[in-house]
Lab assay of single mutants.
Amino acid sequence: MSGNGNAAATAEENSPKMRVIRVGTRKSQLARIQTDSVVATLKASYPGLQFEIIAMSTTGDKILDTALSKIGEKSLFTKELEHALEKNEVDLVVHSLKDLPTVLPPGFTIGAICKRENPHDAVVFHPKFVGKTLETLPEKSVVGTSSLRRAAQLQRKFPHLEFRSIRGNLNTRLRKLDEQQEFSAIILATAGLQRMGWHNRVGQILHPEECMYAVGQGALGVEVRAKDQDILDLVGVLHDPETLLRCIAERAFLRHLEGGCSVPVAVHTAMKDGQLYLTGGVWSLDGSDSIQETMQATIHVPAQHEDGPEDDPQLVGITARNIPRGPQLAAQNLGISLANLLLSKGAKNILDVARQLNDAH
């Protein structure tokens, strides 16, 4: 009898209710805020589980004197976190989706994509230029951005401005803007500013005609071990179906173009009346040469937790077992079709030249 009692006690200790789920994140304040929001949602869904947040620095956090596009290494903000995932030191990792490459290392998958916040870019102005827009900034004003995508589009749109690289986390960039006289304004992701509670610093939100956004911008991705079915089931509740389908289309477009950090590629997606609209573009580094096109596809946005595919093969690095396969494939095909259209119009040449120029500098 006593033996059975011990077995029952052991089973209770090993039951999922007692389990601590370890969540990996970057150390920056924004990353911690984003991770806290994901953990809060998981806690609400699984009140019996405990969650421990483990923060670590990544290569991208450490190399702050070089433009991201020049470092010449993929997975700048993800490699150390993936290493911890691989060694079973954490069970899942919360990322900004735009930091996750469209091809993940073997053994990993994006197990959830959370509801997207505003994906557009924002302009934050130096205190002396508050009330201005990019259009009304004085001639030769210097605007800071760490992104080739932003610089290429904005140089084309605002030729009277000069664009220079600015690195560091959000706090560091804002301090550089406010305390030094080098920059009249800087460009940042609206979602990051909003998550930090800095709505009052948003001086201008850039519309798609001015600057399309990065693939996955404004959404959070939760990376897990691809074979860890328990954790895949656990994080599945975080999937937002519309965000998922938009981001599958965007990531398929980028992957098929073979774009990345070192080339200016941008997108804009919208879901309306059962249609998914995808606009994508590529630019030369100075913005003088560009190709942009829009395509659409009829896609039914499923309700969360309709029964999805059981075999769960990944699409552009994403596993969404609780979302039907048909809409996911339709979104992926839309991204591939748009990429093929741009490639047929000469996108590869623009991107190759951009890559060579970026590598040469």
Rank of each mutant, 00 (worst) to 15 (best):
278 L>M: 06
25 T>F: 05
328 Q>K: 13
91 D>F: 01
341 L>T: 14
226 A>S: 08
144 G>Q: 01
118 N>G: 04
298 T>S: 13
325 R>S: 09
277 Y>R: 12
206 L>N: 01
324 P>I: 04
276 L>R: 01
121 D>K: 01
24 G>T: 03
28 S>H: 01
139 E>W: 15
341 L>Y: 07
235 V>E: 06
21 I>C: 05
119 P>L: 03
188 L>T: 11
89 E>L: 10
159 P>Y: 06
33 I>N: 11
326 G>P: 11
346 G>V: 07
19 R>G: 13
128 K>R: 08
238 L>K: 01
283 W>Y: 13
42 L>H: 01
214 A>Q: 01
151 A>N: 12
57 S>K: 01
122 A>V: 13
53 I>C: 07
191 A>C: 04
95 H>D: 04
178 D>K: 04
308 G>K: 01
149 R>I: 04
75 S>E: 05
223 E>Y: 01
293 E>T: 03
51 F>D: 07
36 D>R: 07
291 I>R: 15
319 T>M: 01
301 V>C: 08
154 L>Q: 09
112 A>K: 01
334 L>S: 07
247 C>N: 06
327 P>N: 01
193 L>C: 01
237 V>Q: 04
203 G>R: 04
227 K>N: 06
44 A>S: 12
120 H>M: 12
151 A>V: 11
335 G>R: 01
190 T>P: 04
45 S>V: 09
309 P>A: 14
102 T>A: 12
294 T>K: 03
351 L>P: 09
130 V>R: 14
39 V>A: 13
75 S>K: 15
313 P>R: 13
136 T>D: 12
338 L>H: 01
273 D>S: 04
25 T>Q: 03
273 D>H: 06
148 L>H: 04
249 A>V: 07
113 I>M: 01
242 E>K: 10
187 I>L: 09
357 L>Y: 11
40 A>D: 11
200 N>D: 14
142 V>D: 09
20 V>G: 07
356 Q>H: 13
202 V>S: 06
301 V>I: 13
61 D>W: 06
51 F>N: 05
346 G>R: 11
92 L>F: 10
22 R>G: 08
123 V>H: 03
36 D>G: 13
114 C>I: 13
78 T>R: 01
128 K>P: 01
315 L>F: 15
342 L>S: 08
231 I>D: 12
319 T>G: 07
276 L>H: 01
201 R>C: 07
300 H>F: 14
50 Q>P: 15
141 S>E: 09
91 D>A: 08
326 G>R: 08
316 V>G: 08
154 L>G: 10
212 M>W: 01
195 R>M: 01
59 T>M: 12
259 G>K: 15
210 E>S: 05
349 N>K: 13
331 A>M: 04
294 T>G: 14
208 P>T: 08
131 G>L: 08
89 E>Q: 14
187 I>S: 07
129 F>V: 09
31 A>Q: 01
102 T>Q: 07
349 N>W: 15
75 S>D: 06
129 F>S: 08
198 W>D: 08
298 T>C: 08
318 I>S: 11
344 S>P: 14
185 A>D: 06
295 M>P: 01
266 A>D: 09
188 L>M: 08
353 V>T: 15
52 E>H: 05
159 P>C: 13
331 A>V: 05
147 S>F: 01
139 E>M: 08
328 Q>G: 09
276 L>I: 05
79 K>N: 13
258 E>T: 01
153 Q>D: 01
338 L>Q: 04
251 R>S: 06
166 I>G: 04
266 A>L: 03
292 Q>E: 15
22 R>D: 05
97 L>M: 08
39 V>C: 10
46 Y>M: 13
283 W>G: 13
211 C>F: 15
63 I>K: 04
118 N>E: 14
96 S>M: 05
312 D>M: 08
201 R>Q: 09
173 R>G: 01
86 E>W: 04
232 L>I: 14
240 D>L: 01
24 G>N: 01
136 T>H: 12
98 K>H: 01
183 F>V: 14
189 A>T: 05
217 Q>K: 04
200 N>Q: 01
207 H>C: 11
230 D>P: 11
243 T>G: 11
228 D>V: 04
283 W>P: 09
239 H>M: 05
354 A>M: 13
133 T>Q: 06
212 M>F: 15
309 P>Y: 01
86 E>F: 08
179 E>W: 09
158 F>I: 12
282 V>P: 01
153 Q>S: 08
136 T>K: 13
111 G>C: 01
358 N>I: 15
112 A>I: 01
142 V>Q: 06
172 T>K: 08
142 V>R: 12
282 V>F: 09
148 L>Y: 01
349 N>T: 12
77 F>C: 04
27 K>H: 10
141 S>H: 11
155 Q>D: 06
118 N>P: 11
297 A>P: 01
167 R>I: 08
157 K>D: 08
275 Q>K: 12
59 T>V: 07
194 Q>E: 06
179 E>A: 14
124 V>L: 09
101 P>N: 07
354 A>G: 15
234 L>A: 14
36 D>K: 14
256 H>G: 15
76 L>C: 14
164 R>T: 12
216 G>Y: 05
109 T>M: 08
311 D>Q: 11
295 M>L: 14
179 E>K: 08
133 T>D: 13
301 V>P: 01
319 T>R: 01
146 S>M: 06
271 M>W: 06
354 A>D: 15
327 P>L: 05
134 L>S: 01
190 T>D: 09
